[in-house]
Amino acid sequence: MAYQPVVIDPENPLGYYTGIYLAQTADERVKRKLGPDYKGGGAVTSILLYLVEHGVVDAVVVARRKKGLYGETIIAKTPEEILEATGPKWSIVPYTLGLREKLTSMDVGRVAFVGLPCQAQFLRQVKMFPLMESDFSKKIYLIISLFCMGTFAVESFLNYIKKSYHVSPDEIENISINGDELVVKHVRGEIRIPIRDALFHLQHGCLTCPDYTGLFADLSAGKALKPGFTLLITRTKLADKIVREASNTGYLKLSEPDEESLRIVIEKAREKIMRSYKYLSTVL
């Protein structure tokens, strides 16, 4: 069996993996879409493009930002749809009944899923331990998880921006991270919010979550220290193969991860596990 059992352990916070890469998109469409001042890597989008354009999967399930902090889950089958979903997500986009219906009725065989660590856990369980006869286990081909320190309770966070900075939700155009500040672009300009202040608006459930990188995924991806780069952690042979192929076919540029990026991701992963222990003990 290709998949290694997951053990959550602060001594080994990245879990089992087969490779770690520093990746950068090599795809012009992705670069154009991200624009010059975007600090993320676009590597995930590039991998998805590779998967769809080379017929490795029939569709990908991704979250697309609808407006401000809200999003929706879509099943993308074309490069255009995938490109449209590019960019960071600030809230969790729930899986809904509609997703199962679409997946089962649509003529798709292999599907790649991009989600947050909690969703990766769900998908892994569906794939490995189908508790329901109607589970779409056979369609789950690849699980990609984005790094996650927690997601915002949307209404609460929006209300905070409105009260403290007088920017209303429909005025927000984009949110990005710069160092330890959140940069919120809006129609009239830009505000910078210290991450510390924003943390208060994280969902409580996220505080008990021990998973930063997505231990249950085939492939975990998140921002590297170096601007424009993505840190990729492959956890299965399949993921490893896909990442290499995407690089061989010109979608990605891969390099060795730098020590500092590695140190930080390990630190954050451990911090999240410790944080979860602390909060969990209060709710048991």
């Binding site: 969790i92 729930p94 899986y95 909690c118 856990q121 459930g205």
Partner: peptide
Amino acid sequence: GLCVGCGACVLS
């Protein structure tokens, strides 16, 4: 208050 809204339960 611990739910994060991932939707796993709904699909299960």
